[in-house]
Design a protein around this nucleic acid. Sequence first.
RNA 1: GUGCCUAUAGCUCAGCAGGAUAGAGCAACGGCCUUCUAAGCCGUGGGUCAGGGGUUCGAAUCCCUUUAGGCACGCCA
Length: 571
Amino acid sequence: MDYKGYIAECISKALNDDLDKVLGLLSVPPNENMGDVAFPCFSYAKQFRKAPAMIAQEVLERIKSDSDFDEKIIAKMEVAGGYLNFFLNRNEFISSVVSDVVEKGVDFARSDEGNNKKVIVEFSSPNIAKPFHIGHLFSTSLGNSIEKIYSYLGYDTVKINHLGDWGTQFGKLISAYKRWGVDEDILKDPINELLKIYVKFHQKAEENPSLEDEARMYFKKLEDGDEEIVRLWKFFVEVSMKEFSRVYNMLNISFDSYAGESFYQDKMPEVIEMLEEKGLLEDSEGARVVTFGDMPPCIIIKKDGTTIYATRDIAAAIYRKRHYDFHKNIYVVGLPQTLHFKQVFGVVDKMGFGWADDCVHVGFGTVRFPDKKLSTRHGDVVFLEDVLNESIAKTREIIENSSTTKEIENVDEVATKVGIGAILFTFLRNARERDIVFTWEDILDFEGESGPYVQYSYARGKSILRKAEEQNIEYRGAKLDVLDSQEEFALVKLIKDFPEAIRNAANKYEPSIVTRHIVDVAQAFNKFYNSCSILKAEEDVMKARLNIVEASCICIKTGLNLLGIEEVEKM
RNA sequence: GUGCCUAUAGCUCAGCAGGAUAGAGCAACGGCCUUCUAAGCCGUGGGUCAGGGGUUCGAAUCCCUUUAGGCACGCCA
């Protein structure tokens, strides 16, 4: 049942005004005892030359006298100031929402509005031969969640890990390797050892800038396919991927494609040719660029003849359009690259590809330390794997010290799911464009608006449902219209609103909207849990409440899963 | 210098296609475990929504401006 829609219909009939316009005006009163849905009449004052309150009163009367008016849906209407407030019939509302959710399960908010249209999500994209650090979790968690949200809404999604496996940095790495690399050490601890020589390169290059030229020379060799250099490059890629997949396994994240930058190596000449043909390339200080009227030029070929990341991104976009024929091509990449993507999409647009408008850069903030910025080049890194392990360890400790935790058969599994969920949750809680200041204290805070809080609410609910099952209580299909308390109503309203939150999150590429919503649901659930006894209630009420518990669990689980977080049955 | 972003409680943040008394969490203080998991719940205190103009019946929300931060602005990605 679409309650808002029904109310809008009543009003639009009474006012003889456009349904969508009325729907857009509907809001929620600031206070529960003022009603559930509010219709502000101010905007009609001029048109009708009447005071808003008077208009509200007239609308109220017309709706009431309409023969179609259904008192089973709207229990009461009230004029308050210039608002017409609607009170829903709680029994009816709770009953219909809860039975629907329980019947459909985790698919209750699913939709097919995506119509199987192809949506590409490029995310994570770590750099080969560099550590997978805490900063990478932003793109990784966001992209993973965005993909799940779109998939849930019926889109056909493709997850692409655009590996940073090409570029001048490899020239630097190879130069460093040739100078200081020791195979034995590298094989023992690849990423750390490669990082060490990479850092050393930057230190030495500060004193001796000619090292940069050497690095460029090696990258040129790599692009030209020099056998020895390519072999080295392959070695770096191989050892890095092994490390990365360990982290992806912990996070339970997978990809449909690992086509990174190197994949587009042989696809660039054609792009350059196309650009040349369309007369878009200009000479500028020895380089070949595409210029714009309203932003800085985009370099396509550097003066040493090699390509640059913009060239690869353009080639990648064209390849993806051909290969996937996407409806939408999403890049989950940090905010500092905003201009870069504007330029890349701008070039694609200039090439005459209308689908440039279907490419979207989803930016996000920076993970910072309280004092400084995270910088791989200086070697101050917090490894993601360390953070995850620390969080798991802390979770285990809490489980062991808890007086209320039930006996858990699979402590490791629970600690892993809760510990990792806590970290993911932290990254998906706030608007993505905000920076995250990393402190161990904050990231391991498991109280309040946190992943464990939400998982805990779920586990509490499931605990009750288990008990009901053990006692052979058959609550499914029970009469539900016996409930109308404030706590129950508030909780069910939030569950009812969940699908809209998901749609909202998709439109804004903002998983935090889902995160916030399930925190609200969990809060409402805990209030309900604390104020209404369930298994000890009178039979009708008990059975009805068990249905609310199940609906709450379904909603919370669905939300967590859309964030890439797993629920636990006990904790 | 040019462009983009941000500024809301002591701290971290919601709210921002304008709407009624600006909300959470953390921290502080005071309560609640003989009853379904206290990783919980209830309560108290805490605000010049950065400053100033404007639009509007109505502004944290829209426009202008000042200030303070951040980021980006060609051969890294």
